[in-house]
Simulated assay, not measured.
Amino acid sequence: MSSNDQRLDALDLPLPPAPQAMGVYKPIVIVGDMAYLSGHAPLKEDGSMVTGRLGLNLDVEAGFAAAKLTGLAMLSTLRAELGSLDRVERLVKLLGLVRCTEGFVDQPAVINGCSELFRDVFGDDAGVAARSAVGTNALPGGIAVEIEAIFQIRQG
């Protein structure tokens, strides 16, 4: 059986540098065996963010890709804090916010970009969690998606 770190490496998806806080908050807070990740954005390799509005200038495929990038940024935060993704026991809850037009109804398909990544890294059981996918008219900096999560972790 492969480890979480090995499964991520096998996907051949580079992690961006762990994002730094852009305000008065921490990107991750650990309480007991729970890790709470603040909302993360779709961080591109060049350090810029994916911006736009689903249903206007972004389609579901572009939103899915943005959610996957967001998931990679979240994995980077976890690895930087924990030292290894192997300390992740399971994903407990995922909340995805999608910047979209009023008539856009495919928020779950967009957030699947992150959900499928976490499933591929943490496994079919531990990588699939309770989840909400919500549409909104605005997100910080005009980003396309913002995702936060709760993970159960092993003590280090």
Results as ranks from 00 to 15, higher is better:
21 A>Q: 08
31 V>I: 11
139 L>H: 04
10 A>G: 09
26 K>C: 06
144 A>R: 04
7 R>A: 07
12 D>M: 14
115 S>L: 15
79 R>M: 10
2 S>R: 14
60 V>D: 04
121 V>F: 01
58 L>N: 03
123 G>W: 10
85 L>N: 00
10 A>H: 08
104 F>E: 00
146 E>S: 10
51 T>R: 01
144 A>L: 07
125 D>T: 11
67 A>H: 00
59 D>W: 10
32 G>A: 13
37 L>A: 08
61 E>P: 02
22 M>T: 14
21 A>W: 03
83 G>I: 00
105 V>G: 09
49 M>Q: 05
84 S>Y: 05
147 I>Q: 06
58 L>V: 02
58 L>S: 01
34 M>H: 13
155 Q>H: 14
40 H>D: 08
78 L>E: 03
141 G>H: 01
94 L>Q: 10
1 M>F: 09
64 F>K: 12
60 V>T: 10
79 R>T: 14
66 A>Q: 05
1 M>I: 08
103 G>D: 10
57 N>W: 01
109 A>H: 05
127 G>R: 07
32 G>D: 15
49 M>W: 03
11 L>K: 10
138 A>P: 11
90 R>F: 07
48 S>T: 04
112 N>W: 07
37 L>W: 10
114 C>Q: 02
113 G>A: 05
100 C>W: 01
137 N>H: 12
141 G>Y: 03
38 S>D: 11
43 L>W: 00
79 R>P: 15
98 V>N: 05
61 E>R: 09
11 L>G: 11
114 C>H: 06
40 H>Y: 03
120 D>N: 13
91 L>V: 09
13 L>Q: 15
126 A>N: 12
78 L>D: 03
135 G>V: 12
93 K>E: 14
1 M>H: 14
154 R>K: 12
72 L>D: 10
151 F>L: 11
124 D>V: 11
132 S>F: 13
114 C>K: 02
123 G>H: 09
113 G>E: 04
45 E>W: 07
119 R>F: 14
17 P>D: 06
26 K>P: 02
127 G>T: 05
43 L>P: 00
56 L>I: 08
88 V>Q: 05
108 P>H: 05
102 E>D: 15
52 G>F: 01
136 T>A: 07
48 S>F: 01
57 N>A: 02
101 T>V: 05
101 T>H: 04
135 G>W: 09
155 Q>W: 14
125 D>G: 09
86 D>Y: 01
144 A>Y: 04
73 A>H: 00
140 P>I: 06
18 A>E: 12
12 D>C: 14
16 P>T: 06
109 A>K: 13
148 E>Q: 15
31 V>Q: 14
70 T>L: 01
24 V>P: 07
35 A>C: 06
128 V>D: 10
3 S>R: 10
115 S>T: 11
108 P>E: 05
108 P>W: 12
50 V>D: 00
150 I>M: 11
32 G>M: 05
105 V>L: 15
34 M>I: 09
81 E>R: 08
24 V>Y: 11
32 G>T: 13
42 P>E: 09
41 A>Y: 02
33 D>R: 14
7 R>P: 03
100 C>D: 03
99 R>D: 00
95 L>T: 13
79 R>C: 11
131 R>P: 08
80 A>I: 02
58 L>Q: 01
32 G>K: 11
130 A>N: 15
67 A>D: 00
27 P>W: 08
153 I>W: 04
125 D>C: 09
50 V>Q: 00
